[in-house]
Design a protein around this nucleic acid. Sequence first.
DNA 1: ACATTAATTGTGT
DNA 2: ACACAATTAATGT
Length: 205
Amino acid sequence: MMFQGIFEEDLEKEIEQFATHVEFDKGDEIIGYGEHMQFIPLLNEGVIKVFKENKDGDEILLYFLEQGETCAFTLQCLQVGDFKSEIRAVAETNGSILKIPLHKMEDWMAKYTTWRQFILASYQSRIYEMLDVIDSIAFQNLDTRLINYLKDKAMVNRSMTLEITHQEIADELNSSRVVISRLLKKLENDHKIKVGRNLIELTEL
DNA sequence: ACATTAATTGTGT
DNA sequence: ACACAATTAATGT
């Protein structure tokens, strides 16, 4: 299991005891907007992508969660005392999470320093990722954002060839298919990538 | 092997 | 952004 060796023995035992192990498949929705948070999810295996939507129902990808991480927004839900989810989480790959009951969360924060550190560290790394997102949305043009997206996607999937359609990319970046197609074409002409049907190969990124 | 169709990608306005 | 053309993959005959 993923979290072995990180926490002290007692905590590991408690995790064993109180966490429920849940498997998920690619494409499964882990949490939807407005859903009540009853658990803290620890990502045991696989990749989860996290979205935020605006009032018009447009949605953008915020970041990928990788194994060993937890979602900062669920933590925020705790502190604010508002247990409704501001985000949506969808499985990028198959994997599994450990669901930690909320009361245990608070319990462990007080009891275990390793847990506290883990939560704070994960909080911090999320904040930095969010800053990147803000930067790329506010100050960069779409082609840089697209490149970042492709790199990120390649990283979490540990593969330089991505199976994805232009439409899907457009949805995640909240752009349109046509625009993405044109940008991809440009990248291909610059020999940065190769595109095929349902396929993008990162050659020189 | 060929025709049909749906999905994906390309391009001009 | 929209409309339409072109290409590709999948399926049936």
